[in-house]
């Protein structure tokens, strides 16, 4: 069931990214819906779930929006998902403030990891400026808070029935 919901979330992220790219092409680059899926899976499912969701999300992102070399986003998001999952088992990250921090840090770590991996594998990729990185972190954090809150409410509503 968890796999199904994760796949559905990744599909929704893919469609959201596609739609945003059509409607607001420039602003769509600031927002990363796949990262939200990875962070949420890591926070709620632990390191394995976060890791697998990260790998899947990264690969889908690589395949559909990536460049010549596939797997860079997959690897970076895999590590991000693992890190968040591991952190969620050791720290209490269920509070909104902590989640916001995790979202922002995850965005920055993901971007840094991607950049480093791109350098290691000699892949030409656009580097995000510090300002762009902060903007991306803020946007992901803000949208992620709303999405996570909505997801939590839905989970609470569905939990008694299950």
């Amino acid at each position: 069931m968890r796999v199904f919901w994760t796949a559905l979330a990744l599909l929704a992220a893919l469609l959201a990214q596609t739609a945003l790219g059509r409607v607001v092409p420039m602003q769509a680059r600031v927002f990363d819906p796949f990262l939200l899926v990875v962070v949420y899976c890591g926070l709620t499912g632990g390191e394995v779930h976060g890791m697998l969701a990260g790998a899947a999300a990264g690969w889908v992102q690589d395949v559909h929006f990536g460049g010549r070399i596939l797997g860079l986003s997959g690897l970076s998001k895999l590590l991000v998902g693992f890190g968040i999952g591991m952190g969620s088992t050791r720290f209490h990250l269920g509070e909104p403030g902590a989640r916001l921090l995790v979202l922002m840090v995850a965005t920055i770590v993901d971007a840094v990891l991607f950049g480093q991996l791109a350098q290691v594998f000699d892949v030409q990729a656009y580097e995000l400026s510090p300002l762009g990185l902060i903007a991306r972190a803020v946007v992901n954090g803000a949208v992620g808070m709303v999405v996570f809150e909505t997801m939590d409410r839905q989970r609470r509503r569905w939990a008694p029935r299950a």
């Binding site: 790998a55 596939l70 860079l72 690897l75 895999l78 991996l117």
Partner: peptide, 8 residues
């Protein structure tokens, strides 16, 4: 991942 990327 590293293998896949390296092969590419």
């Amino acid at each position: 991942h590293l293998v896949v990327i390296s092969r590419q």
